[in-house]
Protein backbone atom coordinates (compact mmCIF):
# COMPACT_ATOMS: atom_id res chain seq x y z
CA UNK A 1 0.00 0.00 0.00
CA UNK A 2 1.32 3.42 -0.97
CA UNK A 3 0.13 6.56 0.81
CA UNK A 4 0.54 10.30 0.55
CA UNK A 5 0.87 11.93 3.97
CA UNK A 6 0.51 15.59 4.88
CA UNK A 7 2.07 15.88 8.34
CA UNK A 8 2.42 18.85 10.70
CA UNK A 9 6.14 19.44 11.30
CA UNK A 10 7.24 21.83 14.03
CA UNK A 11 10.81 21.77 15.37
CA UNK A 12 9.98 23.08 18.87
CA UNK A 13 7.30 24.97 20.81
CA UNK A 14 8.40 28.37 19.45
CA UNK A 15 8.75 27.21 15.84
CA UNK A 16 6.00 28.33 13.45
CA UNK A 17 5.53 24.89 11.95
CA UNK A 18 4.03 23.82 8.62
CA UNK A 19 2.41 20.92 6.82
CA UNK A 20 4.98 18.74 5.00
CA UNK A 21 4.12 16.12 2.38
CA UNK A 22 5.64 12.63 2.50
CA UNK A 23 5.11 9.48 0.48
CA UNK A 24 5.32 6.14 2.20
CA UNK A 25 5.35 2.75 0.49
CA UNK A 26 5.19 -0.87 1.61
CA UNK A 27 2.39 -0.42 4.12
CA UNK A 28 0.69 -3.69 5.07
CA UNK A 29 -3.00 -3.65 5.95
CA UNK A 30 -2.41 -5.38 9.31
CA UNK A 31 -0.20 -2.52 10.50
CA UNK A 32 -1.64 -0.05 12.96
CA UNK A 33 -1.63 3.64 12.05
CA UNK A 34 1.32 4.21 14.40
CA UNK A 35 3.25 1.34 12.80
CA UNK A 36 2.70 3.03 9.47
CA UNK A 37 4.32 6.15 10.98
CA UNK A 38 7.14 3.94 12.30
CA UNK A 39 7.79 2.83 8.70
CA UNK A 40 7.88 6.46 7.59
CA UNK A 41 10.25 7.37 10.45
CA UNK A 42 12.67 4.53 9.61
CA UNK A 43 12.78 5.83 6.07
CA UNK A 44 13.38 9.40 7.31
CA UNK A 45 16.18 8.20 9.63
CA UNK A 46 17.86 6.30 6.77
CA UNK A 47 17.67 9.47 4.66
CA UNK A 48 19.26 11.47 7.48
CA UNK A 49 16.08 13.44 8.18
CA UNK A 50 14.46 14.17 11.54
CA UNK A 51 11.79 11.53 12.31
CA UNK A 52 8.22 12.68 13.01
CA UNK A 53 7.63 13.00 16.77
CA UNK A 54 4.31 11.61 18.02
CA UNK A 55 3.03 10.47 21.41
CA UNK A 56 2.44 6.77 22.01
CA UNK A 57 2.81 4.34 24.85
CA UNK A 58 0.75 1.16 25.33
CA UNK A 59 -0.39 0.88 21.70
CA UNK A 60 -3.35 -1.15 22.88
CA UNK A 61 -5.92 1.60 23.30
CA UNK A 62 -5.90 2.08 27.06
CA UNK A 63 -3.21 4.57 28.01
CA UNK A 64 -4.42 7.76 26.35
CA UNK A 65 -1.00 8.77 25.04
CA UNK A 66 -1.59 8.63 21.29
CA UNK A 67 -3.10 11.79 19.95
CA UNK A 68 -3.30 12.31 16.20
CA UNK A 69 -5.93 14.09 14.17
CA UNK A 70 -6.54 12.17 10.94
CA UNK A 71 -8.26 14.13 8.17
CA UNK A 72 -9.67 16.51 10.75
CA UNK A 73 -10.99 13.80 13.10
CA UNK A 74 -9.14 13.03 16.36
CA UNK A 75 -8.15 9.34 16.48
CA UNK A 76 -9.54 8.95 12.96
CA UNK A 77 -12.94 7.88 11.75
CA UNK A 78 -13.36 4.48 13.45
CA UNK A 79 -15.88 4.70 16.31
CA UNK A 80 -14.50 4.30 19.85
CA UNK A 81 -10.98 3.59 18.63
CA UNK A 82 -7.70 5.21 19.60
CA UNK A 83 -5.35 5.96 16.74
CA UNK A 84 -2.98 3.16 17.87
CA UNK A 85 -5.85 0.70 17.34
CA UNK A 86 -6.80 2.06 13.91
CA UNK A 87 -5.46 -0.37 11.36
CA UNK A 88 -4.31 0.32 7.84
CA UNK A 89 -6.93 -2.05 6.40
CA UNK A 90 -9.34 0.90 6.70
CA UNK A 91 -7.29 2.78 4.10
CA UNK A 92 -6.86 2.23 0.37
CA UNK A 93 -3.74 2.25 -1.76
CA UNK A 94 -3.09 5.81 -2.97
CA UNK A 95 -5.01 7.51 -0.14
CA UNK A 96 -4.03 11.01 0.96
CA UNK A 97 -4.03 11.47 4.75
CA UNK A 98 -3.72 14.68 6.76
CA UNK A 99 -2.05 14.13 10.15
CA UNK A 100 -2.19 17.00 12.63
CA UNK A 101 -1.68 17.42 16.38
CA UNK A 102 -4.52 18.21 18.82
CA UNK A 103 -5.28 21.88 18.27
CA UNK A 104 -6.03 23.97 21.36
CA UNK A 105 -4.54 26.98 23.10
CA UNK A 106 -4.44 24.90 26.29
CA UNK A 107 -2.53 22.10 24.47
CA UNK A 108 0.54 23.85 23.03
CA UNK A 109 2.56 21.85 20.50
CA UNK A 110 5.91 20.71 21.91
CA UNK A 111 7.21 19.13 18.72
CA UNK A 112 5.57 17.93 15.49
CA UNK A 113 2.50 15.97 16.61
CA UNK A 114 3.24 16.01 20.35
CA UNK A 115 1.25 18.42 22.50
CA UNK A 116 1.56 19.36 26.16
CA UNK A 117 -1.54 18.05 27.96
CA UNK A 118 -0.44 19.12 31.44
CA UNK A 119 -3.56 21.30 31.58
CA UNK A 120 -5.51 18.07 32.19
CA UNK A 121 -3.20 17.18 35.08
CA UNK A 122 -3.76 20.58 36.66
CA UNK A 123 -7.54 20.12 36.34
CA UNK A 124 -7.20 16.74 38.08
CA UNK A 125 -5.08 18.30 40.81
CA UNK A 126 -7.82 20.87 41.35
CA UNK A 127 -10.35 18.23 42.41
CA UNK A 128 -10.23 14.99 40.45
CA UNK A 129 -9.71 12.83 43.51
CA UNK A 130 -11.32 11.68 46.75
CA UNK A 131 -9.67 12.20 50.10
CA UNK A 132 -9.32 8.91 52.00
CA UNK A 133 -7.63 7.77 55.16
CA UNK A 134 -4.51 5.77 54.62
CA UNK A 135 -3.84 2.76 56.82
CA UNK A 136 -5.81 -0.44 57.08
CA UNK A 137 -7.77 -1.72 54.10
CA UNK A 138 -11.51 -1.12 54.62
CA UNK A 139 -13.89 -4.09 54.72
CA UNK A 140 -14.88 -5.17 51.23
CA UNK A 141 -18.62 -4.49 51.53
CA UNK A 142 -18.61 -1.80 54.19
CA UNK A 143 -19.95 0.77 51.71
CA UNK A 144 -22.79 -0.66 49.65
CA UNK A 145 -23.04 0.69 46.09
CA UNK A 146 -25.78 -0.39 43.69
CA UNK A 147 -24.72 -2.21 40.56
CA UNK A 148 -26.37 0.47 38.41
CA UNK A 149 -24.43 3.29 40.08
CA UNK A 150 -21.20 1.31 40.04
CA UNK A 151 -21.64 0.72 36.30
CA UNK A 152 -22.35 4.40 35.63
CA UNK A 153 -19.30 5.47 37.64
CA UNK A 154 -17.23 2.93 35.73
CA UNK A 155 -18.52 4.19 32.34
CA UNK A 156 -17.24 7.68 33.21
CA UNK A 157 -14.06 6.34 34.80
CA UNK A 158 -13.27 4.74 31.42
CA UNK A 159 -11.97 8.16 30.29
CA UNK A 160 -8.27 7.79 29.47
CA UNK A 161 -7.67 11.55 29.37
CA UNK A 162 -6.35 11.52 25.80
CA UNK A 163 -7.84 14.93 24.98
CA UNK A 164 -9.61 13.90 21.76
CA UNK A 165 -12.73 15.68 23.06
CA UNK A 166 -10.81 18.97 23.17
CA UNK A 167 -9.28 18.32 19.76
CA UNK A 168 -12.68 17.55 18.17
CA UNK A 169 -14.56 20.46 19.70
CA UNK A 170 -14.69 23.54 17.51
CA UNK A 171 -14.28 25.56 20.70
CA UNK A 172 -11.46 23.37 22.06
CA UNK A 173 -13.66 22.80 25.09
CA UNK A 174 -12.63 20.31 27.76
CA UNK A 175 -16.16 19.86 29.07
CA UNK A 176 -16.41 16.13 28.28
CA UNK A 177 -13.12 15.32 30.00
CA UNK A 178 -13.88 17.38 33.11
CA UNK A 179 -17.47 16.10 33.17
CA UNK A 180 -16.30 12.47 33.03
CA UNK A 181 -13.92 13.09 35.92
CA UNK A 182 -16.63 14.87 37.92
CA UNK A 183 -19.32 12.29 37.12
CA UNK A 184 -17.28 9.20 38.00
CA UNK A 185 -17.36 10.36 41.65
CA UNK A 186 -20.89 11.74 41.55
CA UNK A 187 -22.31 8.20 41.50
CA UNK A 188 -20.16 6.93 44.35
CA UNK A 189 -20.61 7.54 48.10
CA UNK A 190 -16.87 8.21 48.36
CA UNK A 191 -17.30 11.19 46.05
CA UNK A 192 -20.04 12.91 48.05
CA UNK A 193 -18.12 14.80 50.80
CA UNK A 194 -16.09 16.81 48.25
CA UNK A 195 -18.73 16.89 45.53
CA UNK A 196 -19.47 20.64 45.49
CA UNK A 197 -15.88 21.74 45.93
CA UNK A 198 -14.72 19.28 43.29
CA UNK A 199 -16.97 20.59 40.53
CA UNK A 200 -16.35 24.25 41.41
CA UNK A 201 -12.57 23.85 41.52
CA UNK A 202 -12.26 21.66 38.44
CA UNK A 203 -14.44 23.97 36.35
CA UNK A 204 -12.51 27.03 37.56
CA UNK A 205 -9.23 25.35 36.59
CA UNK A 206 -10.69 24.31 33.24
CA UNK A 207 -11.64 27.92 32.51
CA UNK A 208 -8.25 29.19 33.75
CA UNK A 209 -6.45 26.85 31.33
CA UNK A 210 -8.12 28.60 28.38
CA UNK A 211 -10.39 25.86 27.09
CA UNK A 212 -13.51 27.05 25.26
CA UNK A 213 -17.16 26.57 26.18
CA UNK A 214 -19.56 23.84 25.12
CA UNK A 215 -21.95 24.56 22.25
CA UNK A 216 -23.69 21.18 22.45
CA UNK A 217 -22.56 19.82 19.10
CA UNK A 218 -21.36 16.58 20.69
CA UNK A 219 -18.32 16.12 18.43
CA UNK A 220 -16.49 15.15 21.65
CA UNK A 221 -18.81 12.21 22.26
CA UNK A 222 -18.50 11.17 18.61
CA UNK A 223 -14.70 10.90 18.72
CA UNK A 224 -14.24 9.70 22.31
CA UNK A 225 -12.34 6.41 22.11
CA UNK A 226 -14.11 5.29 25.30
CA UNK A 227 -17.60 6.38 24.24
CA UNK A 228 -18.11 8.74 27.18
CA UNK A 229 -21.64 10.14 26.93
CA UNK A 230 -22.41 13.87 26.92
CA UNK A 231 -24.89 13.03 29.69
CA UNK A 232 -21.81 13.62 31.87
CA UNK A 233 -21.75 17.26 30.75
CA UNK A 234 -25.38 17.73 31.76
CA UNK A 235 -24.59 16.16 35.14
CA UNK A 236 -21.62 18.50 35.59
CA UNK A 237 -23.71 21.54 34.57
CA UNK A 238 -26.35 20.49 37.11
CA UNK A 239 -23.78 19.93 39.87
CA UNK A 240 -21.98 23.17 39.05
CA UNK A 241 -25.18 25.18 39.16
CA UNK A 242 -26.22 23.55 42.43
CA UNK A 243 -22.78 24.04 43.96
CA UNK A 244 -22.57 27.68 42.79
CA UNK A 245 -25.86 28.42 44.48
CA UNK A 246 -25.37 26.45 47.68
CA UNK A 247 -21.64 26.12 48.44
CA UNK A 248 -21.10 27.94 51.69
CA UNK A 249 -17.32 28.45 51.56
Amino acid sequence: MKLKLHIWRQKHAQDKGKMVTYEVDGIIEDMSFLEMLDVLNEKLIVNGEEPVAFDHDCREGICGACSLTINGIPHGFEKETTICQLHMRHFKDGDTIYIEPWRARAFPVIKDLVVDRAAFDRIMQAGGFVSAHTGGVPDANATPISKIDADKAMDYAACIGCGACVAACKNASAMLFVAAKVSQYAYLPQGQPERKKRVLNMVAQMDAEGFGGCTNQYECEAVCPKGISVAAIALMNRDFLKASLTDAS
Binding site: H6, W8, T69, R105, K170, A172, G210, G213, Y218, A222
Partner: peptide
Amino acid sequence: RLKALNLSARPEAYAFKNTVKATLASRTM
Protein backbone atom coordinates in the same frame (compact mmCIF):
# COMPACT_ATOMS: atom_id res chain seq x y z
CA ARG B 1 -18.42 36.67 25.36
CA LEU B 2 -18.59 32.93 24.74
CA LYS B 3 -17.86 33.32 21.03
CA ALA B 4 -14.75 35.41 21.76
CA LEU B 5 -13.60 32.86 24.33
CA ASN B 6 -14.27 29.93 22.00
CA LEU B 7 -12.38 31.55 19.13
CA SER B 8 -9.37 32.25 21.34
CA ALA B 9 -9.36 28.64 22.61
CA ARG B 10 -8.14 27.45 19.20
CA PRO B 11 -5.62 29.94 17.79
CA GLU B 12 -4.29 27.53 15.15
CA ALA B 13 -6.96 25.98 12.92
CA TYR B 14 -6.78 22.49 11.45
CA ALA B 15 -5.51 22.30 7.87
CA PHE B 16 -8.13 19.62 7.22
CA LYS B 17 -11.48 20.66 8.69
CA ASN B 18 -13.98 17.93 9.40
CA THR B 19 -16.92 17.13 11.63
CA VAL B 20 -18.63 13.88 12.61
CA LYS B 21 -22.09 14.86 13.74
CA ALA B 22 -22.33 18.60 14.37
CA THR B 23 -25.50 19.80 12.62
CA LEU B 24 -25.49 22.77 10.24
CA ALA B 25 -27.86 24.57 12.63
CA SER B 26 -25.41 24.14 15.51
CA ARG B 27 -22.49 25.40 13.43
CA THR B 28 -24.29 28.55 12.30
CA MET B 29 -25.86 29.74 15.58
